[in-house]
């Protein structure tokens, strides 16, 4: 059996994605930090256990905020050819998804508040399977619109009900 290997999808996402992921991860840590501080202030601050707990949380937050956006930026990739859509996402846990263009049913662009702040957009490509949506996160708006236009053209050309 010949060893089959897949290369990464060809394209990186937007450069601004790193800042976007950093900013999007901040609120969660801020809330946790706030709750932790409140608890520690209310309780007895000067014990070794509580200090250790706070220190660990702070270290984890710092590590996550420093490492995650860089790592994610290297993993998140996408490629659309004449016949297939191929995405790669995640960081600690990674996932590759492949679906044929002929089976694409809908293509959506979605822009939440954080995405708008950085001029980014997410593209979701769905097939007839509920388990199969391919999501490309943090694209330039222009790139996203280009992908949607391309896929919409192709999907119309192939026809059928996609199941």
């Amino acid at each position: 059996m010949t060893e089959v290997q897949l290369r990464d999808p060809a394209h990186l996402v937007s450069r601004r994605a790193r800042a976007y992921w950093l900013v999007r991860a901040l609120p969660g840590w801020l809330v946790l930090g706030g709750v932790l501080t409140a608890v520690l202030v209310a309780a007895d601050w000067s014990s070794a256990v509580t200090t250790g707990l706070a220190g660990t949380a702070a270290a984890l937050a710092l590590l996550h905020l420093l490492v995650m956006p860089q790592w994610r930026y290297r993993v998140h990739r996408w490629e659309v050819t004449d016949t297939a859509v191929y995405t790669q996402s995640g960081w600690f846990d990674q996932e590759r998804r492949i679906a044929p263009v002929a089976r694409v049913q809908t293509v959506d662009i979605e822009r939440g508040p954080f995405e708008q702040l950085f001029g980014l957009a997410n593209v979701t490509v769905t097939t007839a399977s509920a388990r199969g949506p391919l999501k490309i996160h943090a694209l330039d708006r222009g790139t996203a619109e280009h992908i949607v236009a391309w896929l919409t053209d192709r999907a119309q050309a192939t026809g059928g009900d996609g199941t």
């Binding site: 679906a99 097939t127 399977s129």
Partner: peptide
Amino acid sequence: IGWNLRSTFFQR
């Protein structure tokens, strides 16, 4: 229709 290939850090 298509394929999802998932691998966690430990799986890799």
